[in-house]
Simulated assay, not measured.
Amino acid sequence: MPVNQIPIGTFSRITQLSQKALRLYDERGLLVPVARDICTGYRYYTVAQAERGIHIGHLLRLGFDLGEVEVILAAREQGDAGAIRDLFARRLAATEQEIGRLHAIAEILRTQDPLNGGFRMSVTEPVIKEVPALRALARREKGVYHETIPGLIEELFTFVFPVDGRQPAAKMAGPIMYICHDDEYRETDADIEMAIPITGSVNVAGSRVEIRTLPGGRFVSVLYTGPYPGVGKAYERLFAYMGEHRLSPAGPSRELYLNNPHEVPEAELLTEVQFPVQEVSPSA
């Protein structure tokens, strides 16, 4: 072994990257060893490569994935500071969002009610109500709940709360709502639609927002009070009620957010959960 070559074990200690990770980076072309033993396949690196390895480890610890690390290193080699700044800004925004989520968890743990699974919450008795058809601004996208929902709400709000001082293009005629199009909980590709009932004319041309009519009909409804993560208790009560009264879902559920999480404590958040329903046939 030439004196200027470092075996993979030593290189692993220098860079604080596991040998398994180094083999992966070799396969991806991210950090290719300068030499390889023909008989054993043992990898060797140079001192100059250690800086790149240390930089890779640093970026991974900041939360960047390997694809982003590759882009950053390529941009660094090309002197493209703008591309690196953009990636860092996006990572910062995601980190701050995660910090907010963790703070919310910490607050729940501090004030937990051990008999209620950590949540202070309540659910009203279900009621049947006739809901009229609603003209609404809507935006639908697949993604992760805590990331996608705030972004969709922000897009919709540009039409009712313009940031540039213009008169709003539409007026809210009801609370913002989440419409669930999935039959199961999904970690990363949830089918999420956010909608705001509106009045007035509005031009959505050139945007990803659409104007559509949300169907009305017979809905069973409960009012849930408490942190958003505990809303499953409302669905539990709704499905129990539907089973007791021989009702079945006739469309996607809706969650109507009746107050602002920036203005009230989590324990006072109000969410109305609605399910369109139909009678179950006697033979079913």
Rank of each mutant, 00 (worst) to 15 (best):
I6F: 01
G9D: 07
I176R: 01
E77G: 14
S281C: 05
L223Q: 13
Y224H: 03
R208E: 15
L60D: 08
P114I: 02
R13G: 11
R13D: 13
L73H: 02
T124V: 05
D37K: 06
P7E: 07
I38A: 12
R52P: 10
G67K: 03
L270F: 04
D26Y: 08
E98G: 12
L137G: 14
A173M: 06
L59D: 05
N4W: 06
V47N: 04
T124Q: 01
L258P: 10
L115Q: 15
A93E: 11
Y228N: 14
V280Y: 00
T225E: 09
A234V: 13
S122Q: 11
P162A: 08
R23E: 00
V277T: 03
Y185K: 04
F275L: 14
I99G: 00
P175F: 07
L152C: 05
I6W: 01
M121D: 04
P265G: 10
C39D: 09
L247Q: 05
T158V: 12
R166E: 10
G232C: 13
L66F: 03
G251C: 12
Y241K: 06
L59H: 03
F11I: 05
S283G: 14
V277P: 09
D183C: 10
Y235N: 13
P265H: 03
E70G: 15
G217N: 04
P175H: 10
G100T: 14
K233Q: 11
F88Q: 14
L92W: 03
T10Q: 15
G226D: 09
A250G: 13
D182P: 10
H181I: 04
A190V: 04
E193W: 02
V204T: 12
Y42L: 04
A138L: 06
L269K: 06
L30H: 08
Y42I: 02
E147P: 15
M194E: 09
R13L: 11
D86F: 09
K129R: 13
E266V: 15
P197Y: 01
N260Y: 06
L102D: 03
I196F: 01
E268K: 12
S122E: 14
I14Y: 07
D86Q: 15
D182W: 02
E154T: 15
F64D: 09
Y241I: 12
E272A: 14
E236V: 14
A173Y: 02
H103Y: 07
